[in-house]
Amino acid sequence: MVEIRVDRDVCDGLGQCALVAPEVFALDDDERLVVAPEVPDGLAGKVAAAVRACPVRALVVEGA
């Protein structure tokens, strides 16, 4: 089970993660990050890529 933690102090809503893994990450109307409660099967690789695509290193993935 993959768990995603967002450091809200750091996240700037740049939305790069939402471009890489839109199944899991999205921005709301105020450009705040919204993360899906559960990561669909088979998306661990995409989520890892989204974490690396974050310019401010706001995302951490736990478990696998």
Binding site: G13, G15, A18, L19, P22, L27, D28, D29
Partner: peptide
């Protein structure tokens, strides 16, 4: 500009 939530749809 301040409409970031729409971009993933375009990226796709």
């Amino acid at each position: 500009v301040n409409q970031g939530k729409l971009l993933p749809g375009y990226a796709r």
